[in-house]
Amino acid sequence: MTQTPLPRRRLYLMRHGSVDYFLDDGTPVPPDTVPLNATGRAQADAAGALFAASAVTFDRVLVSGLPRTVETAQRALAAARSTTTIETDPALQEIRPGRLSDLPRDQVRDAFLGAFEGGATREAVEQHRFLGGESVGELLDRCLPAWTRFLARDDWDCALLVLHGGVNRALLSSALAGTRAFFGRIEQAPACINVLDIGADHAVVRAMNLSPSQWLHHRERQTTMEKLLAQYLRT
Score class of each variant (00 low, 15 high):
Ala76Ser: 12
Leu139Ala: 05
Phe116Gln: 03
Ala80Thr: 15
Leu144Cys: 08
Asp24Trp: 04
His164Ile: 15
Ala200Glu: 00
Thr235His: 09
Ala203Met: 07
Ile186Asn: 02
Asp59Trp: 15
Thr148Val: 00
Phe112Ala: 02
Val34Gly: 13
Arg185Thr: 04
Glu187Phe: 01
Ile86Tyr: 12
Val204Ser: 15
Leu151Cys: 00
Thr72Lys: 07
Glu71Thr: 07
Phe130Trp: 15
Pro212Lys: 08
Ala230Lys: 03
Ala230Leu: 01
Ile193Tyr: 08
Thr33Asp: 06
Pro97Gln: 06
Leu50Arg: 12
Leu11Ser: 03
Ser82Val: 03
Asp25Val: 06
Leu176His: 04
Gly48Tyr: 07
Gly133Asn: 13
Ala78Asp: 08
Gly137Asp: 12
Gly114Asn: 01
Thr83Gln: 05
Thr83Ser: 12
Cys192Glu: 02
Thr69Ile: 12
Phe183Met: 02
Leu6Arg: 07
Ser82Tyr: 05
Thr2Leu: 15
Ser101Arg: 09
Glu134Asp: 05
Val70Met: 06
Gln222Cys: 12
Leu229Lys: 04
Met1Lys: 13
Asp45Lys: 07
Gly178Ile: 07
Tyr232His: 09
Thr148Tyr: 02
Val29Ile: 15
Ser135Phe: 12
Val19Asn: 13
Val108Cys: 04
Ser54Trp: 14
Gly165Arg: 04
Arg41Glu: 14
His164Phe: 07
Ser135Met: 08
Glu138Thr: 15
Asp110Ile: 01
Ala44Ser: 11
Arg8Tyr: 14
Gly26Cys: 14
Leu229Met: 04
Arg68Cys: 08
Leu210Ser: 03
Leu161Pro: 01
Ile193Asn: 05
Pro35Ala: 13
Pro67Ser: 15
Leu23Gly: 09
Asp24Ile: 02
Pro145Asn: 06
Ala115Val: 01
Thr83His: 05
Leu163Ile: 05
Glu134Tyr: 12
Ile86Leu: 10
Gln3Val: 13
Leu176Trp: 00
Ala124Gln: 11
Thr223Ser: 10
Gly137Ile: 10
Ser101Ile: 13
Ser135Cys: 09
Ala230Tyr: 04
Arg60Leu: 03
Val56Asn: 11
Trp156Asn: 00
Phe150Arg: 01
Phe130His: 12
Ala152Phe: 02
Lys227Leu: 07
Leu151Ile: 03
Ser64Lys: 06
Ala203Asn: 09
Thr85Asp: 08
Leu13Asp: 03
Ser54His: 15
Arg206Leu: 12
Asp155Tyr: 04
Pro212His: 15
Asp155Asn: 02
Leu62Phe: 00
Leu6Asn: 10
Asp89Ala: 01
Asp102Met: 06
Trp215Lys: 14
Ala79Lys: 07
Glu94Asp: 10
Leu139Lys: 04
Phe51Ala: 08
Phe58Ile: 11
Leu6Pro: 09
Ala46Arg: 09
Ala53Arg: 14
Thr33Met: 13
Pro28Asn: 06
His218Asp: 14
Asp32Ser: 14
Ile95Thr: 07
Leu6Val: 14
Thr69Met: 13
Val34Ile: 09
Arg68Thr: 06
Thr69Gln: 00
Ser54Met: 15
Thr121Gln: 00
Glu117Phe: 03
Pro90Met: 10
